[in-house]
Computed example of a mutant assay.
Amino acid sequence: MIDGLESVMLYVDNQDQSVAFWTKDLGFVIRSEDLIYDDYKSVEVAPSLNSETSIVIFDKEFIRETGHEVNLDTPSLMFRVKDLDALYADLNNKGIRCGEIVKTPDGRVFNFSDDEDNYFAVKEAG
């Protein structure tokens, strides 16, 4: 039986740029950085060191070269935050592209994109 979600794999064109986005722009922390093959590494980031789930960032080129038959598309991720308005203002002030805040039956949400035009969503915690 599955007990939970450990991590999400995120495959990107520019790993250093992506790690900077998640850490500098969004305030995530680096949990680990492991050399996995030649010059390729995996970088695990999370909202905090004790977060239940993390994002592991891989270079797409590594995945292509090693022949893994993996879908390289960006997963749809929904984050939660207590103060949606503060996060929305912070991301906009940093020049991060954000969609409008929308009210849904489950609460207020908005989306934002990284430097590679991958979109992610944020939901206000209830």
Rank of each mutant, 00 (worst) to 15 (best):
V70G: 09
N118E: 05
T66G: 12
M78S: 12
F79G: 01
A89Q: 15
F58L: 11
I101F: 06
E44Y: 01
V109E: 09
F120Y: 08
G99D: 10
F112P: 00
G4T: 07
D85V: 05
E100P: 05
I30S: 05
D117K: 15
L87C: 06
D85P: 06
S48D: 05
A86P: 04
H68I: 03
Y119D: 10
N118W: 00
I63L: 06
T104F: 10
L35I: 03
V102M: 11
M9F: 13
I101D: 08
D90R: 08
K60R: 14
D3N: 14
E65C: 05
V29Y: 02
T53F: 00
K41C: 07
E69S: 15
Y11K: 15
L5W: 09
S18H: 05
T23S: 04
T74E: 12
D85R: 14
Y119A: 10
N14V: 01
N111R: 10
I57W: 01
F79W: 03
F79L: 06
N50G: 07
G126N: 11
L26M: 14
N14H: 12
K123D: 04
Q15P: 01
A86V: 06
I2L: 13
V81Y: 04
D83M: 06
D83C: 03
K60Y: 00
W22G: 01
L77K: 11
V102A: 09
